[in-house]
Design a binder for these strands. Structure first.
Lengths: 340, 340
DNA sequence: TTGTATGCGTTATCAT
DNA sequence: ATGATAACGCATACAA
């Protein structure tokens, strides 16, 4: 009735505690025949290790590093806050977290920083960086050193990362497209702005967005993406110009830099009749939702991202299986009425 | 550097381990002066108990009962599945869960079943039942017996439940209203159907829905609620009749019983031009979303509900504080493109 | 190759 | 009123 313990296994297999431990942890120095006896007892009794007791005995400490974009990035800032909060709430205790900020635009700087990590004293790394050949190499190096690696928010599909924690960008773009098509009330053009950050993500969002609009909303025409390169002045100028020259009915902001975009929209005096959709819930987008400047925000919950990354990294370290249902990050649609 | 342990406290306070334990667990038989010494050491060293080690020593077992509606309720079924899954995934181990199904329509039967619970062998109860005076009494009785009680999905605000795990129904209704107003493309009437289950929830959803529609969408008129009382034939008849006689442009389904509603809508041949919105993601509503019969679903994630209930019940049992950010159940908007 | 003994942080049962 | 001491389930240094 009570869960079997290592003692039960030892008794059942007719060996000592230490031998059971050796088999369970795949340590050398046990005869094949003995291994078989123990494993047999394990399955017969349905033994499952008590991870907490194990960690207690082992004085286990998980050392994780989170690599996030530096600069005035509201999303990254809220992710940091969520990490601190999750950590403080002992979501995963026996865990030491270090947050490292890197310049997204400089792959070499990123890799240099990754190389500085002391892999011997590291159990896992969560990376929110664009995929480049250099980053792929760095991931391979971490993996070779036995470090667990997860991609966060933006996937590194061609690297050796163990897991991706985030949403499907194409689906997110499709969701934005469907909302845009249903919200807009007359034919016209849709302005798409991007800051060209995390290029693949933007590309995929655009792909999904266009597919839905062109497939189902014949009255809408999506204009070529306008890139701001994180320059508020440039953003303002370009947006103002397009709004003046074109018959814009909707605006889709694929990346960050929403503060500058929203300022430009407000200045244009078109807020009332434009349907604007952006990504990620930040102070800026939240207040824009309340104010009516944004019709919808497509988001992923940063708290969930943080907790999920922590849980997945631990599971990877312990060789445990991952509870996919809990770790799946949903594409959230936030309107004025369901802001958390 | 390392977290302080009870040993450190004992040394710092100049007492034995046993005394520290007595103070920490508020056990009798310690002089006030000694208590003060220990508590002082606790704050000075910043001691925080290792719950896992404590549970290990205590051989703690959490015994929880979940009281859910019986009958062919898809939402309750998926909640059951989510509970099983969360339990199997050791979201909270050392936990024994029992699921009890009760007839929602019969408050006396509910209370009779609640009285049968062996409170001495119980640590916590999660209730998904409508609030009635009888239920309030039953909650009071459970609380008096020292059992932790949480309301699940549907709140029991006037009872002595410790916590509510679910969404704000008014906000959910407002969200549905906003989506309806923005999705519908011409003036007309909105049919609201309800199965009168969980009366207060339906009332609150309706309240929020009406407030948004009447406040912001002057072209829409919300018809009086149609109640089906879980009778598919009745549902079909009423819906068909209203669609024939009125200029309906939208349908809002506030409760369960969506299978019958959707069948009626399909039969009417109006699926293409109606904007229909329902609550809760079930096999029925999910396939309706894909098919285009439903424009949107307002949902709460059952996996989250299950895990949250488990975590909150544990925290209540251990007298721990609750990590509100993680336990907040969000109002999710599901469209065809972001179905999980 | 295998077994014994001890400790991890906490609780609980004995003595004193 | 207080203090040793032995568990809890697991890991591991050290013996055999």
């Amino acid at each position: 009735m009570n869960r079997p313990t290592v003692h039960d296994i030892a008794k059942e297999a007719g060996v000592s505690l230490a031998t059971v431990d050796r088999v369970l942890n795949a340590r050398p120095g046990v005869r094949d025949k003995t291994i078989a006896k123990v494993q047999d007892a394990v399955v017969r009794l349905g033994y499952v290790r008590d991870t907490y007791a194990a960690n207690l005995a082992r004085k286990r400490l998980y050392r994780f590093v989170f690599v996030l974009p530096e600069g005035p990035n509201q999303f990254a800032a809220s992710l940091c806050a969520a990490l601190d909060e999750a950590h403080a709430a002992q979501i995963s205790d026996r865990t030491a977290i270090e947050i490292v900020r890197v310049p997204l635009r400089d792959p070499h700087a990123i890799v240099r920083r990754l190389r500085q990590l002391a892999v011997e004293t590291l159990d896992g790394v969560a990376l929110m960086v664009p995929e480049t050949p250099q980053v792929r190499d760095a991931v391979a190096r971490l993996k070779a050193a036995g470090v667990a690696v997860v991609a966060l928010v933006s996937d590194l599909p061609n690297s050796r990362r163990d897991h991706f924690i985030g949403t499907n960008s194409v689906a997110a773009g499709r969701t934005a497209g469907l909302l845009m098509g249903r919200f807009v009330r007359r034919p016209g053009e849709v302005l798409v702005v991007s800051n060209s950050m995390r290029a693949r993500d933007s590309l995929e969002r655009r792909l999904g967005f266009d597919a839905v609009i062109s497939g189902e909303f014949a009255g809408l025409r999506v204009l070529p993406s306008v890139e701001s390169f994180d320059d508020p002045a440039r953003m303002s100028a370009v947006v103002t110009e397009v709004l003046a020259r074109r018959d814009v009915v909707g605006v889709y902001s694929m990346g960050s830099g929403n503060t500058a975009l929203l300022d430009a929209l407000r200045e244009s005096g078109r807020i009332g009749d434009l349907v604007s959709i952006a990504h990620e819930l930040t102070p800026t987008t939240e207040s824009a939702l309340r104010e009516g400047a944004l019709a919808a925000v497509i988001a992923q919950n940063v708290g969930h991202l943080a907790r999920s990354a922590l849980r997945v990294l631990r599971a990877l370290c312990d060789g445990l299986s991952i509870y996919e249902a809990q770790e799946r990050v949903r594409i959230e649609i936030i309107l004025r009425e369901n802001i958390s």
